[in-house]
Amino acid sequence: MSSWKLINMSSLIDLIFFSEKRKNLLVQLDNGPMDIDEIKETLNVKACAIMPQIKKLKDMDLIEQREDIYQLSDIGAVIVEKMIPLTSLINVFDGNKDYWSKHDRSPIPTNLIKKIDMLGRCHLDEPDLDHLFEFPEFLRDRLSSSKIIKSFYSYFCPDCPSIQAACAKNGAEVHLILDERVYKRLKNDFEDEYNVLLENKVSLYIYSGKIRPSSFMIADNFVMLKLFGKEGEFDNNKIISYTPSAVEWGNELAQYYIDRSTKIN
């Protein structure tokens, strides 16, 4: 009887997810068979480090060896096909579990909650007291090189008008969605900044819905998402992801709010 028929689910999860080397090896073999030199180079490991992991996966019939070539077994291929989305989902919450559990996720549409694994590995940005309302400095180069930028703010951000206008001046297509109260404050109390946005052809939208995120920004190469706490409290911590699939997910989120907003110009 094959070893995989005897393995229980708990042991299978331990085998795959409790070792980055084993997990990464399975993912790489999903791209095709490899010899040991290719495995070492791709995973940046020494033979003495990876061979014990190969043996464990062979013992469980997840990979097989034909002469000097390693490849997924038939059951290994099935497991990896199901494993990759789960791995992406785990990456979303890895190190950020408290953020997702303690913040209001209702502004994220159900169809995007179901695809939240598209965010991939996320970074939790926790600004210090001196930089609470400033745009993250480490994202400025990424932002300035972006051709399309879509942002949402349900609070007044002092940096927002100048950042959006600067991107538009650089030739970016800029869409700015504002909570109705924020829009009125911008127009009435910050007339110069408001006119700068109009002069630089920033597309402005007013969102009047009750369910809304704190803010988000979607650029060509990153997604930045900020949610309110579960009791509606404001929190400056934010989730950031850089993967192409995260940008695709973020653009769907932005379009969801654009479709439910009123265009001003």
Rank of each mutant, 00 (worst) to 15 (best):
S208N: 11
Y257F: 15
N111Q: 11
K40I: 10
I39D: 05
V182N: 03
L204G: 07
L225F: 04
W249L: 04
K46E: 14
D189S: 12
G120I: 01
E191S: 08
I258E: 12
S151H: 03
N170W: 00
R121S: 15
A172C: 06
P107M: 03
Q53W: 01
I79W: 08
G250L: 01
Y256A: 04
C48E: 13
M9Q: 12
E64S: 09
F216I: 00
N195R: 08
E64L: 07
S145P: 00
S215F: 12
G171H: 03
E126P: 00
L139A: 09
L225Y: 05
F17K: 05
C157Q: 09
P85R: 11
A246M: 02
Y205K: 02
N221F: 01
L197S: 09
P127D: 10
M60N: 15
S106A: 12
N96Q: 13
D141A: 10
Q164C: 11
Q28P: 00
W4C: 08
R260N: 10
R185V: 08
F152R: 01
A219P: 08
H103E: 08
I177Y: 04
H103D: 08
E81K: 15
V27N: 01
S162Y: 08
I113F: 06
D179C: 06
R185G: 11
R212H: 14
F17C: 07
S10T: 10
L176K: 05
V247Q: 00
N265I: 03
Y183C: 07
E199I: 00
P136D: 07
S245H: 03
V45C: 13
Y256K: 01
P161E: 11
I75D: 07
E233A: 07
R260M: 06
R140F: 01
F216A: 06
Y205H: 07
R121G: 11
E137L: 12
D141S: 13
D141W: 02
S245Y: 02
K169E: 14
K238C: 13
P33Q: 07
D159M: 09
D98G: 06
I163G: 09
N265H: 03
N170H: 03
F18R: 07
D159R: 00
I108Q: 08
E38T: 11
R121W: 04
P213W: 03
D179G: 13
G120Q: 00
N251F: 05
E137V: 12
C48L: 09
P161Y: 11
R140C: 04
K5M: 12
A254I: 02
L129N: 11
R181V: 09
R181E: 14
S245A: 13
S88M: 14
I13A: 14
L253A: 04
R181W: 03
